[in-house]
């Protein structure tokens, strides 16, 4: 039996950030879908709930925090691991995101190592060339 492909939704109003994130996440073995705002992201989740959501904070048409609150209100929406990925880097924003239901938090700029570590911290498997043992 083949293993189900893991899916990741990248939500960011910057096409460049989405492209960079897609390249890294696809290398980890995930199928990636993109959304440029919170409304589009909710629509995608309603159709097919991803395993992982990489979420920007400041976006038009429902920001990341409002999207997360809406998402976590549904039973299915509690399942995805949500990693905020944002330029908001103060303690207050991080604490608010965690209270709102985020599993991890990445402050931009980020790189492959940081993303790898964060996905491991939220318990998601990744396909990687890193030889831990």
């Amino acid at each position: 039996m083949s293993q189900r492909e893991m899916t990741c939704l990248v939500v960011d109003d910057s096409a460049v950030i989405r492209k960079v994130a897609r390249r890294i996440i696809e290398d980890f073995g995930y199928a990636v879908v993109e959304a440029e705002d919170g409304d589009s992201a909710l629509a995608i989740c309603a159709e097919s709930m991803p395993d992982l959501i990489l979420l920007d904070w400041n976006m038009p048409n429902r920001d990341g925090y409002a999207f997360l609150q809406e998402l976590r209100q549904t039973e299915a929406g509690k399942r995805p691991k949500v990693v905020f990925c944002t330029t908001e880097n103060d303690v207050g924003a991080i604490a608010r995101a965690l209270r709102g239901g985020a599993d991890e938090y990445i402050m931009k700029p980020f790189d492959r190592d940081i993303l790898t570590a964060k996905l491991e911290q939220v318990g998601l498997s990744i396909r990687t060339n890193t030889d831990f043992y």
Binding site: D90, I94, A95, E104, D113
Partner: peptide
């Protein structure tokens, strides 16, 4: 900011670190 993100769970960042500027 870059160093604290490499491997440190964000909950422990809040628990054990104080932000001083950047």
């Amino acid at each position: 900011q870059f160093e604290v993100q490499r491997g440190l769970p964000v909950q422990w960042l809040l628990k054990y670190f104080t932000q001083i500027g950047e």
